[in-house]
Write a protein that binds this DNA or RNA. Structure first.
Lengths: 228, 228
DNA sequence: GACGATATTTAGGCACGGCGAATTTCAGAA
DNA sequence: TTCTGAAATTCGCCGTGCCTAAATATCGTC
């Protein structure tokens, strides 16, 4: 079973299911429908087709998981997507708020040969322009130790941005505040009840709503050595 | 009318019609069918749809031509295709016998922004890796003065290869004989009645069948200055 | 004016992916 | 336990897109 045997719509379903099952929970039909902006009826129909191809295990009324094959195909598409994003940003200077849309179309049509050439050109990178890990060809996913959302971060410690959501609107907002991947910052105060979060950026300060803070991940700026 | 309004199949029909009408003659339905490997009935059906969109003028039983809009779209795809071929060859080292296939899929999905970035990266090139002209954004097509097929070339004059057909099998064959774009050569003898053509390549000689000679274009190696 | 080549129309097939409405199932509250 | 609302599924259907074979029509030529 290889990717040319399934439609791009199916590939998109697999990607969505992979993402929704990251927590370990089976993906609810309604969540898939919301993600892909289609009706629940459409999702049920597609899940039946994917199950017939043995790409997912669909437990009626209980949710859906990927099979080994389904996971392999999902990761192949995600790998394509993130490699393309990074390639476009690095090699062609496409701004980080536009790479996602372009990659969404390209990911379905590049050959494995081209994928390898892009990866080699970039030095087999581990993270895309938004800090998301690029799955390796063997299915392993690089990790970023100590990474958590800005919401979860403690105040007063030196942090750096490790990952941001790829929503173009958020990315442009962050651009406007001088926040990018690797930007050092520190949580100053956290207002309760959904109030804003104040962060120090260089010599300035900046207030971020909880919506944004949820979609930014950070890690300690001076990572402590840990004995293995 | 922009390209997102028409399917990739329609885009392929427009490309084929553009190529078949280069001579000035309207494209016969059967020629389109042969080119795209579909039945004549399919072509008639598609031509009706393209005519309804005012992309072609279809004179029943007389052949088909592109409208101004149809030509614009056809050239846009051809421009994409050839730019992508060159980009893949130059930036990623894809061998010239594989760029066509990859470009055939990519040409339908790249954005205009990406097209411009690739062109800029390559220095706004005029010819693709097979020597085919890359249409400019304004619709002009770069020309290669003095270019003709190897079949038409006179014996004894210094020539250089300016263009080759993009058939992968031919390209690999030429690779095997050390013939590439720009390769200097000279016609030694031409056998009549479909016999082979003998060319001098550097210090060696090589026999080419008429099939190959038809698909290779050459120009004088030392172009004479002509007063304008 | 008849023939062969070419083209078109007709009628239909099939894959795909989607939807609304009706129905079923589940899980938690009463 | 029974009810009930949310979630999921099934059912019937639609529309697009592209294709085909067979029947029909047209063209150019002898």
């Amino acid at each position: 079973m290889d990717r040319s045997a399934i439609s791009t719509a199916m590939q998109d379903y697999l990607k969505a299911i992979w993402d929704l099952t990251r927590s370990g929970e089976a993906a609810p039909t309604s969540a898939i429908a919301e993600r892909l902006e289609v009706s629940a009826a459409s999702v049920s129909g597609m899940l039946k087709r994917l199950a017939a191809l043995e790409l997912v295990v669909h437990e009626p009324y209980q949710g859906t998981r990927l099979t080994v094959t389904g996971r392999r195909l999902a990761l192949e598409m995600i790998r394509h997507h993130r490699l393309i994003e990074l390639y476009l940003a690095e090699a062609l200077g496409v701004p980080w708020d536009r790479v996602h849309e372009e990659a969404e179309r390209l990911e379905h049509v590049i050959s494995e040969d081209l994928e390898r050439r892009m990866a080699a050109h970039l030095g087999d990178p581990h993270f895309d322009p938004h800090g998301a890990p690029i799955p390796r060809m063997d299915g392993e996913i690089p990790s970023m130790p100590g990474s958590r959302t800005l919401i979860e971060a403690e105040a007063g410690a030196p942090l750096r941005v490790t990952q941001v959501d790829d929503d173009p609107e958020l990315l442009r907002y962050l651009d406007g505040h001088g926040i990018g991947l690797g930007t050092p910052l520190e949580v100053v105060t956290r207002e309760p009840f959904g109030g804003p979060l104040v962060v120090r950026l260089g010599r300035g300060e900046c207030r971020l709503g909880p919506e944004a803070a949820h979609r930014i991940r950070v890690a300690p700026h001076e990572p402590q050595e840990s004995e293995s």
